[in-house]
């Protein structure tokens, strides 16, 4: 289907062609070609070490910061070659936000954690409003509204992770990359984050890495199954979970992986 002028959103937000990532000489991502459409939630699933985080980091050029990491092939964001010579990674990361696999709040107050990204990106509006809005979106506001000046390090692991989500939302990115955002959360907080993802879909495009099959099935529109650096299968989530084409996909999602 070719994208018409009016249906600009039909063009993929993220598109890779034959994308590989090498750590030294070992190939962690092997020639992946994938398209992610606007206002969709895409889930990356696959066994530990298969390259999900590595692939995710290509989309906001965080792999630039990993010593020894090399990228081959092509990655595009709304048609723009992410690894083109005149692309500023700073600008890329401001548009494509990220929540890390491990919570990594700044050793500062809760307020400052959320405000930091907005501040460095020249936000001119009301910081208090922005912080409140972001914390509400990340389902953390009620727990911290009375102690915004307290250190973020004093929060529980799950609260820290939601703070990191709030922090990423505060710069109002276009795409949100989430690397196992709920792996440290209890079922209630997980539910809140999943609701959040559902809400955010209207404005954002989201890529989420998860080890939780039910979660992938619940929140995502499309699912990619990765195995040893390859995308084995990529398609509508319903189809992947009810009628996978590849036996390896089926074995993985049914827990019979050998």
């Amino acid at each position: 289907m070719s994208a018409g002028v009016i249906e600009a959103s039909a063009a993929p937000v993220i598109e890779t062609r034959d994308l590989s990532v090498l750590y030294g000489t070992t190939r962690a991502v092997k020639g992946v070609s994938i398209e992610i459409d606007a206002n969709r939630v895409v889930a990356f699933i696959g066994p530990s070490g298969c390259g999900k985080s590595t692939l995710l980091r290509c989309f906001n050029r965080m792999n630039d910061l990993v010593p020894g990491a090399n990228i081959e092939g092509e990655a595009r964001y709304r048609g723009l070659n992410l690894y083109g010579p005149d692309v500023d990674p700073i600008e890329v990361r401001r548009r494509i936000g990220m929540v890390f696999q491990k919570p990594n709040p700044f050793p500062k107050s809760i307020f400052e954690n959320v405000a930091f990204g907005a501040r460095i990106n020249g936000f001119r509006g009301s910081m208090a409003d922005l912080v409140e809005k972001s914390l509400r979106q990340a389902a953390l506001w009620d727990e911290v509204k009375d102690r915004l000046d307290a250190s973020a390090m004093a929060l529980s692991g799950g609260q820290q992770q939601r703070l990191c989500i709030a922090r990423a939302l505060a710069i109002e990115p276009d795409v949100l990359l989430m690397d196992e955002p709920t792996s440290a959360l209890d079922p209630i907080a997980t539910q809140k984050i999943e609701d959040l993802i559902y809400d955010l879909k209207r404005e954002y495009t989201i890529v989420i890495v998860t080890h939780n099959m039910q979660q992938a099935a619940r929140v995502s529109d499309r699912t990619a199954f990765l195995y040893m650096g390859d995308v084995i299968e990529y398609g509508p989530t319903d189809q992947i979970f009810t009628n996978p084409r590849e036996t390896r996909t089926e074995e993985y999602i049914t827990g019979r992986f050998g």
């Binding site: 990361r93 890390f100 990204g117």
Partner: peptide, 15 residues
């Protein structure tokens, strides 16, 4: 200072 703090700042578009 943990590396993760630098990564967090870079991921928010910090120079």
């Amino acid at each position: 200072v943990p590396k993760s703090i630098r990564l967090a700042a870079f991921a928010l578009g910090a120079t």
